[in-house]
């Protein structure tokens, strides 16, 4: 197993936001964590990435404990994390943001392959290299955030609500990219409030509620589970929305 989270609990000012959460992600998998707003999804990712320090529990990555390590060391181990608010460097150019992504692999020769891969996945970024990251559209910022994360050459990519605020067409594009990355060997841990689109590409899923895992299973089972559909995915299928209304993402 690439990532094993065992009994993880994290508190803010003494209040537990997640409680005894255990999940697993293996190479070649997309794992989705769904759950309502405030369920603790972001806290889970922050606790794995070292942004927040868990109060108890273990995070084991590639056989070694990483909980308690500082965030930069966790990135160096091979976990890339795209937080909900992306945290790009908005005044720096697209090019500089991507170069910063390869800070751990600074030899020019080591930079070429990851950069080519990012341009293959997101050709639009190549056209915007000199532009300041802060001036990109929401969809492009999401692409840059994923691109920057890929430049660290991760074995696990964690994405926090990548589809938030994006037009359906762009969401579909992001999901296709995520599926493609999985096929190229990057394990994916994907957090989504509206997990319908995510579950379609996922292998496994967990549902968080009130800081704990309340349901888990392979994605097809979860998609077919009436309780999940009603309680966590809503009754209106996103896929039914007319695609003609999708903005271009600019």
């Amino acid at each position: 197993m690439l990532l094993e989270v065992r009994g993880l609990s994290t508190a803010y000012q003494g209040l537990l936001a997640i409680q005894g959460v255990s999940i697993e992600v293996d190479t070649g998998e997309i794992v989705v964590v769904a759950g309502a707003n405030g369920a603790g999804k972001s806290t889970l990712l922050k606790s794995i990435s070292g942004m927040e320090r868990p109060r108890s529990g273990e995070v084991v990555f590639d056989g070694a404990r990483i909980d308690g390590l500082p965030g930069h060391a966790i990135t160096a181990r091979g976990i890339a994390y795209v937080p909900e608010n992306k945290r790009l460097f908005p005044r720096l150019s697209v090019s500089d943001n991507l170069r910063l992504g390869s800070y751990l692999h600074r030899k020019e020769a080591d930079r070429e392959a990851p950069l080519e891969r990012v341009f293959t996945l997101f050709p639009r970024l190549k056209e915007r290299l000199p532009q300041r990251a802060g001036t990109l559209s929401g969809g492009e910022q999401q692409m840059l955030a994923i691109g920057r994360a890929l430049m660290t050459r991760p074995r696990l990519l964690m994405l926090d609500e990548p589809s938030l605020g994006l037009a359906p067409l762009i969401v579909a594009e992001v999901m296709r990219t995520v599926a493609r990355l999985r096929d190229e060997g990057v394990a994916i841990l994907l957090v989504e409030q509206n997990a319908r689109a995510a579950l379609q590409i996922a292998d496994h899923g967990y549902v968080l509620d009130g800081g704990s895992v309340v349901l888990q299973g392979d994605s097809r089972t979860l998609q077919g589970d009436a309780r999940v559909v009603e309680t966590y995915l809503g009754t209106l299928a996103v896929d039914d929305a007319p695609p003609s209304r999708a903005a271009s993402g600019r």
Partner: peptide
């Protein structure tokens, strides 16, 4: 230089540089 870029990035958002493996 990469160090210069790391400085610029750190002054932009010191909490975000860990995401690219930089020890602030």
């Amino acid at each position: 230089t990469d160090f210069g870029r790391a400085l610029e990035a750190t002054r932009e958002d010191q909490g975000a540089v860990a995401l690219v493996g930089i020890d602030r």
